[in-house]
């Protein structure tokens, strides 16, 4: 079981590479931002796997804080950067 958890954590970490590709390619800022959000979600999953692995309550707290606060950057982006730009309806 322990092997499986760590294997899954490594697999999720590799998934981040796929997200990276979106951050680098874009093409719009929203694509990059969503990819960064995907990073956050994957990190929560990795943290929960590590919490099971080490049987640690503290790591679940870290995952909780992560999940709660990942939204703040996205909202900052939507409110400050994206709303009102001339190309926010852009479908490129």
């Amino acid at each position: 079981m322990q092997h499986l958890y760590l294997l899954l954590a490594v697999f999720l970490l590799l998934n981040l590479g796929a997200g990276m590709w979106r951050v680098l390619r874009g093409p719009t800022a929203a694509d990059r931002m969503l990819a960064a959000q995907l990073f956050g979600t994957t990190a929560v999953a990795v943290l929960l796997l590590l919490a099971e692995l080490e049987n640690s309550v503290a790591l679940r707290d870290v995952a909780l804080v992560f999940a709660l606060l990942a939204a703040v950057t996205a909202i900052a982006f939507v409110r400050r950067a994206w709303a009102g730009t001339e190309d926010s309806n852009d479908t490129r």
């Binding site: 997200g19 951050v23 990073f39 943290l47 992560f66």
Partner: peptide, 13 residues
């Protein structure tokens, strides 16, 4: 900036 945010997430791991 987005890459730096992702950097912070990985640093937490």
């Amino acid at each position: 900036v987005v890459l730096f945010v992702a950097f912070g997430l990985l640093l937490a791991l």
